[in-house]
Design a protein around this nucleic acid. Structure first.
Lengths: 120, 120
DNA sequence: AAATAATACATCAAATAATGAGGTATTCAC
DNA sequence: GTGAATACCTCATTATTTGATGTATTATTT
């Protein structure tokens, strides 16, 4: 059902994307697991980036030139630290603007009681 | 990509659903075309309920007992006026609450500059 | 009067993406 | 040495949007 919003794909898809880009922009570089923990923490568990969504997303964003990564060995374990490319920085700004606009629009439609009813 | 939000399905799915339920609650009864026009108008064209999304959604909501409809003949044309059932009223409240909560959460994650950086 | 736009409904194949389940392996705490 | 946490990954299934396509009536423009 989802939606049918002008910027539907770019936006709702972006719920994950915009979060990832914002956090990476803010923290410089982060690895997948770190991202999911950070989001869980900042939202008191309300938003939970699942493995099955997060990793494919990171791969796609990398493929699209939004992110790059470097592998860092932590003992025998490998971490992939992601960061924004220049294109990624632009994309972040775009998505944040869209999100702002989307929220404003939704709020206007959804949370207006005043609008119609002259209240008896 | 979408998301992976606690209430993902119930919420993002709901962008259409919540709009429809809100408008029906507000206006009593409306038909499909009217709904799409109203939304377009109220959002200055930013949100556009497409036929291919709207009608299937109305059918599904009816099947689920959220909506009922009555057919009205306008000349040779038939209009289906939809309205909320009691269950639909409840559902509307639930979705509005979720939407409020979602927006608050997203805003917290996305629009905080203060949070991390101690600024130089 | 004829063409065009708007009204009003509908369906469906294709594309897209989230979910949930499954998998591997390392490190830490008890 | 067992379980939990860390850290990555894939993929089939499911769900949903989109865009195309269709039908038909009414209003408007030329």
């Amino acid at each position: 059902m989802y939606c049918c919003i002008m910027y539907s794909k770019e936006l709702l898809k972006g719920t994950l994307e915009v979060i990832v880009l914002k956090l990476l922009s803010e923290h410089g570089k982060m690895y997948g697991y770190e991202l999911s923990q950070k989001v869980k923490e900042e939202t008191e568990g309300k938003i939970h980036l699942k493995d099955g969504s997060l990793y494919p997303a990171l791969h796609k964003l990398t493929k699209d030139g939004i992110l790059t990564f470097e592998e860092v060995n932590i003992g025998k374990r490998v971490r992939k630290y992601y960061k924004l490319t220049a294109k990624g920085e632009e994309q972040k700004e775009t998505l944040l603007d869209e999100m702002r606009d989307f929220i404003k629009t939704i709020e206007k439609v959804i949370f207006s009681d005043l609008k119609t009813s002259p209240a008896i």
